[in-house]
């Protein structure tokens, strides 16, 4: 502001007003919002079923039902299906991120968040950060069930695979966060999210190798970022190898964030 603006100068009482939130403020506010989201998880434990009971159930179910048919026996199917199920479970958890954000935004407290001098990204980034806990739980549980059933991953690769899975969850969740900020109701967000989530999951290499698919389907399944994430988890956990798929997965996730994070913040800031 130039000094010639005598009328608007020093009119506000109290401390000097900041024109924008600083980066430090933004980080601080995001962490505070993440704290709120964690409290909410603790107090609504039924919201955690999709990352606790579902992975336990699905892992056992999928391995025993499809194991024989797809891979000959359960043991040789586990290295394929465990990373596949991690991909699927994380996508389901991502959908919940968007739906819960929409539900949350309809509540009175969001009116206050909007009226507070805080960074517009904080109410979105906070829950996104806290939800990494959900992806972590889902990933660890799925690997745990797999190991109990006889899956033997590479220990170091396993750790790397968990990190990648959680990062992928955080990244892909921005797609559904955007739906959450655009949608008019939680049901609407849920509907559209499932419509996007199912093709992303099933039109991938999550459950079966893509070479059994017709050409056009295979073409999609091969470029699907979810396929790359799942391949990367397989390479890391099963073989303990850092392959190009890992690089593609990280790059794909980064691209998703680069597109959908700004979209989400813009649409949230506009909605007021």
């Amino acid at each position: 502001m130039t000094t010639t603006l005598t009328e608007t100068e020093t009119v506000a009482p109290g401390p000097v007003l900041a024109p924008h939130p600083t980066l430090r403020d933004t980080v601080d506010q995001t962490l505070t919002m993440a704290w709120r989201a964690v409290k909410k998880m603790q107090r609504n434990f039924e919201q955690m079923f999709d990352v606790t009971i579902q992975p336990l159930l699905f892992t056992a179910m999928f391995a025993y039902i499809f194991g024989g048919a797809v891979a000959g026996d359960v043991d040789s199917y586990l290295p394929v299906i465990i990373p596949g199920l991690i991909g699927q479970t994380i996508l389901t958890a991502c959908v919940a991120t968007g739906v819960q954000l929409r539900e949350d935004m309809d509540k009175g407290v969001f009116d206050r968040f909007k009226a507070l001098p805080i960074a517009r990204i904080a109410p979105l980034a906070g829950p996104a950060l806290a939800d990494m806990l959900r992806y972590l739980i889902a990933t660890v549980l799925t690997f745990g069930v797999g190991i109990a059933m006889g899956y033997r991953p590479d220990p170091l690769g396993l750790a790397a695979a968990i990190v990648l899975a959680v990062f992928a969850g955080w990244s892909i969740a921005w797609i559904f966060t955007w739906f959450g900020t655009v949608g008019r109701s939680a049901q609407g967000v849920q509907g559209i999210s499932l419509m996007v989530m199912f093709p992303l999951t099933f039109l991938s290499n999550a459950f079966v190798p893509t070479d059994t698919m017709p050409g056009w389907l295979r073409a999609f399944a091969d470029v699907n970022p979810v396929s790359h994430v799942i391949s990367a988890i397989r390479d890391l956990a099963t073989a303990g190898q850092l392959t190009t798929d890992v690089a593609w997965a990280v790059l794909g996730c980064a691209a998703v964030v680069a597109v959908f994070l700004p979209l989400s913040v813009r649409s949230y800031a506009r909605k007021m």
Binding site: T8, V11, A12, L17, P19, P21, A115, L116
Partner: peptide, 14 residues
């Protein structure tokens, strides 16, 4: 308090 509502939303919120 002399701060433009449209141009300085973050200040208004303070």
């Amino acid at each position: 308090f002399g701060v433009d509502v449209r141009r300085q939303p973050h200040m208004i919120r303070q």
